[in-house]
């Protein structure tokens, strides 16, 4: 059975799962539910009332041989039909607090962007996404929002901006840090748009605090020319307006790729020596 990469990074908080295909989405969702139940969390899922069986959460879990009858029966897993109400931050806060009050150590929420868009406008949904960070900051909550990787670039940048705990796809994780961004996994021609979006989003907020962002590459196992180009183009506006981008703790092979492409000599980049 296939599973997403597991990294030491704790993927709590408000995170986006960006998937290129339905297959990747299903793997990501099954993995996330399994992890939640393993942790003893209460798992809450929002889907359309009329979700076809093959797309529904239960369909996904069945496909990945995850038996949830007991979890459903005793309330550890709960599925809500999408409505204006279930997306209201106040309502979500109430349900979350109730779960915490009865003894769950943490709570997990997930749903697809298209589910939300079936009951509200994308603009309204984005507003709610911004507020969702607050719920995660104040409670032991993990919210994983599912988005298609095929969204237009601007929309993808918004997705990256509103998820305080970062974005991930099947092979790359990008986690905002106080100094900038930490990358884990592989950055290549399959996810260069996502990486670029994340850098644009992060650079936009960093411009306000001193103009320097640090990209921690310690967990980045592979970077190809397309990935390096994303590091470059995703920070172009930031660097050209006087900002700097510090690339730190890269593995030797990642360092080699960056140097072959002249990133170490490019305006606005600072590169530390590679990890040995």
């Amino acid at each position: 059975m296939e599973s997403l990469d597991r990294r030491p990074t704790d993927w709590g908080g408000h995170v986006a799962l960006v998937h290129d295909s339905e297959r990747q989405r299903r793997i990501g969702v099954a993995d996330w539910v399994r992890r939640g139940l393993d942790l003893g969390a209460k798992v809450l899922y929002i889907e359309p009332e009329d979700a076809p069986p093959e797309r529904s959460l239960l369909g996904v879990l069945e496909e990945h041989a995850l038996r949830v009858d007991v979890a459903l029966a005793d309330g550890r897993l709960e599925i809500f039909a999408a409505s204006d109400e279930v997306y209201s931050p106040t309502w979500q806060e109430g349900v979350t607090d109730q779960a915490l009050a009865v003894g769950y150590p943490s709570v997990r929420w997930s749903g697809e962007e298209r589910t939300a868009w079936s009951v509200m406008s994308p603009a309204r949904h984005t507003e709610i996404e911004w507020e969702t960070d607050l719920l995660c900051d104040t409670r032991p909550v993990s919210i994983m929002c599912q988005y298609s990787a095929h969204l237009p670039q601007a929309a993808l940048e918004t997705v990256c901006a509103v998820h305080g705990a970062g974005v991930r796809d099947s092979q790359l994780q990008a986690l905002p840090t106080p100094e900038g961004l930490a990358l884990a996994g592989s950055a290549d021609a399959a996810n260069d748009r996502l990486l670029r979006s994340m850098l644009v989003a992060r650079a936009a907020t960093a411009a306000a605090d001193g103009g320097r962002i640090t990209v921690d590459l310690a967990e980045l196992e592979f970077l190809d020319v397309a990935g390096a180009r994303a590091l470059w183009t995703g920070t172009t506006a930031h660097r050209m307006s006087g900002g700097t981008v510090r690339l730190t703790r890269s593995l030797p092979r990642v360092d080699r790729m960056l140097r072959l492409l002249g990133v170490h000599q490019a305006q606005g980049f600072e590169m530390e020596d590679a990890l040995e």
């Binding site: 290129d20 295909s21 990747q24 092979q171 592989s186 290549d188 021609a189 399959a190 592979f222 190809d224």
Partner: peptide, 10 residues
Amino acid sequence: PGVHHLRQVR
């Protein structure tokens, strides 16, 4: 089949 198989290739 596509770029999403690059990781498998590597």
